[in-house]
Design a protein around this nucleic acid. Structure first.
Lengths: 187, 187
DNA sequence: ATAATAACTTACTAATAGGTAAGTGTCAAG
DNA sequence: CTTGACACTTACCTATTAGTAAGTTATTAT
C-alpha cells in the first residue's frame, strides 16, 4: 500500500505541529495507526527519512496552494488577503505551522532535513514576496516599502500569532489578521 | 553555592533557546558545567522543577526590562522603538526567543510549566500593550487601531522573524524591524 | 504449484532519558 | 572534637528512544 506511506506522513506532520520533530516518536505513530513500530521503520527506515518525506510533503502543499491562488481570477490585493486568510484557517487552535515547528527544532534536526527546511523557508518566502509584489502594482502598498520585508513581516506575524494563540485565547490570531489587513489598506 | 543554581538556570535557558525544552537534557547541562548529572538533580530534583525555575527567571527578566524602559525619560514612541530594538538585539543569530521555544513545546510540557508559560505570555503581552497604549497618546498610532492587536502583531512578527533568521540570512530580522518602524511612523 | 514480493510482526539491541539511593569530602557552628 | 548541613560523586534503575534481524502472511506473477 502506497496509502500507508501517505497515512504515516500525514500523521507525522500533525505530530510535528503538536509536539515537534524531537517530541514525536515512531511509537506515537505506530500506536495511532494500530501497527507495530517496526512496520513504520519498514516504510521509513530512519527517522531522518521520515523527516525528509515530511518536508517534501510541505513543499508540494505549498506549491499546490500557490497554484490554486495564482489561478484564481481576483485582483492582486485579494490574492494576498486570501492567502493570509487561508494560511490562518489551515490550523486548529492548538496547532502551529509545521514549518515554524521545524525551524524551532532546527539545531536538533539531521543535516538533510535542515537543508530541506532551509529550502522550504525560502520557497514560502518567495511565494509570499511574489504575492506582495503583485499587490504593490495596485494601490495596496507604498513603494517606499521593501517588498521582501513586507512579505517576511506578514508571514512572521502569522506564525508568531499561532504560538501565542496556542497558550492564550483563540482570538489572538484574528486580531493579528485584522491588523495586517488594516496595514495593507492604509499604507 | 547559590551561584551554581543560577549557573544551571542560565545554561538551561540558553539550551531552551537552542534546542527546546524537550531537546535538552540533564546530561547536556552536567557536561557543560563539568559536574555529574546527579549534581544537577540535587539542585533541581525533577526536570519540571528546572522548567519552573526557567519560566520564573524569564518573568523577572521581563519585569526588570519593563522597569528599565519605563524609567527612561523618553517619549512613548521612543520607548516602544527602544523595546523593539532591544528585544531584537537580545538574541544571537541562531537563538530564538525562549518564550517562543516553550510555546512551541507547550504540549510536551508538565502542567505546572504550561501554566507558567501562559502567565509569561500574558505578562509579555500586557507589557507590550502598555507601551503601545502610551505611544498612541502621541501621534504615533491611529486610534482606529486596536491597541492589543497592534501589540500582539509587533511581538508576533519579531518572534516569527527570529525563526526565519535561524535558517536563512541574518538580515531577515532587521528587515522586519524596519518594517514595523515604518508602519508605526505612517499610521 | 512455486517463487517472489510487499507489508507486515515478534523479538530483540544499544543508547539515552529522567530519576534515585547511598556514600564522600568540606566547612562552619556549638 | 564532633555534628550537621551543603554540594557534590558513584553506582545504580527503569522507561523510552531509534533501529535491526528474522520470521510470517497474503497477494501476485510465472
Amino acid at each position: 500500500m502506497e496509502n500507508r506511506k501517505k497515512q504515516i506522513v500525514d500523521l507525522a506532520i500533525k505530530l510535528v505541529q503538536q509536539k515537534g520533530y524531537v517530541g514525536f516518536s515512531y511509537d506515537d505513530i505506530s500506536k495511532q495507526l494500530g501497527v507495530t513500530k517496526a512496520s513504520i521503520h519498514y516504510h521509513f527506515e530512519k527517522k531522518e527519512d521520515l523527516g525528509v518525506a515530511i518536508t517534501e510533503r510541505i513543499i508540494t502543499s505549498l506549491q499546490n496552494f500557490l497554484l490554486s491562488i495564482k489561478n484564481s481570477s481576483v485582483s492582486g490585493g485579494d490574492k494576498l488577503k486570501r492567502f493570509i486568510q487561508q494560511q490562518a484557517e489551515r490550523f486548529a487552535c492548538t496547532e502551529i505551522c509545521p514549518i515554524s515547528s521545524l525551524q524551532t527544532d532546527f539545531n536538533s534536526l539531521p543535516e538533510i532535513v535542515q537543508k530541506k527546511i532551509e529550502e522550504v523557508s525560502r520557497l514560502e518566502l518567495s511565494i509570499m514576496t511574489e504575492l506582495v509584489a503583485e499587490a504593490q502594482t495596485e494601490d495596496i502598498l507604498n513603494d517606499t516599502d521593501d517588498v521582501q520585508s513586507v512579505a517576511v513581516t506578514i508571514l512572521s506575524s502569522i506564525k508568531g500569532a499561532l504560538l501565542y494563540r496556542r497558550v492564550l485565547d483563540d482570538d489572538i490570531l484574528t486580531g493579528v489578521i485584522n491588523q495586517i489587513n488594516l496595514i495593507l489598506r492604509k499604507s
